[in-house]
Simulated assay, not measured.
Amino acid sequence: MNNAKLWTVVKPSTGIPLMLGAVAVAALIVHAGLLTNTTWFANYWNGTPMTAVVAVAQ
């Protein structure tokens, strides 16, 4: 383990749930940001098929 000395300062019964909780909170913040700042992500989660983008040649 790369950070083995960490557990001499913080008990694993405290540190592991804190780290997992931090990861979960970070994931929720990222997903909330995607939902509020994009137009396609909510449609993707709802299963709406994506529309094809057609390029017009000039």
Rank of each mutant, 00 (worst) to 15 (best):
M1V: 01
M1N: 12
M1H: 08
N2R: 13
N3W: 03
N3L: 15
N3G: 07
N3F: 13
A4H: 11
K5S: 14
K5L: 13
L6R: 05
L6Q: 05
W7M: 06
W7H: 10
T8P: 02
V10N: 00
K11S: 15
S13R: 11
T14I: 14
T14Q: 15
T14W: 07
T14D: 12
G15W: 00
G15D: 03
I16R: 05
I16G: 01
I16H: 02
I16F: 00
I16C: 10
I16E: 11
P17L: 03
P17E: 05
L18N: 03
L18V: 15
L18C: 05
M19H: 08
L20S: 07
G21P: 00
G21D: 12
A22I: 04
V23R: 11
A24M: 12
V25F: 06
V25W: 01
V25M: 14
A26N: 12
A27H: 10
I29F: 12
I29R: 10
V30T: 09
V30R: 04
H31N: 12
H31M: 15
A32K: 07
A32E: 11
G33D: 06
L34W: 08
L35D: 10
T36W: 08
N37K: 08
T38Q: 06
T39S: 13
T39Y: 04
W40C: 12
F41K: 00
F41G: 00
F41M: 02
F41D: 00
F41R: 03
A42T: 09
N43C: 02
N43H: 11
N43T: 09
N43E: 13
Y44C: 02
W45H: 10
W45E: 15
W45D: 09
N46I: 08
G47N: 06
G47T: 01
G47P: 01
G47M: 06
T48S: 14
T48A: 15
T48M: 03
P49R: 04
P49W: 08
P49H: 08
P49V: 06
M50W: 12
M50Y: 10
T51E: 13
T51F: 01
T51A: 14
A52Q: 08
V53E: 10
V53C: 04
V53A: 14
V54Q: 15
V56R: 08
A57V: 02
A57P: 04
Q58W: 03
Q58P: 13
Q58Y: 04
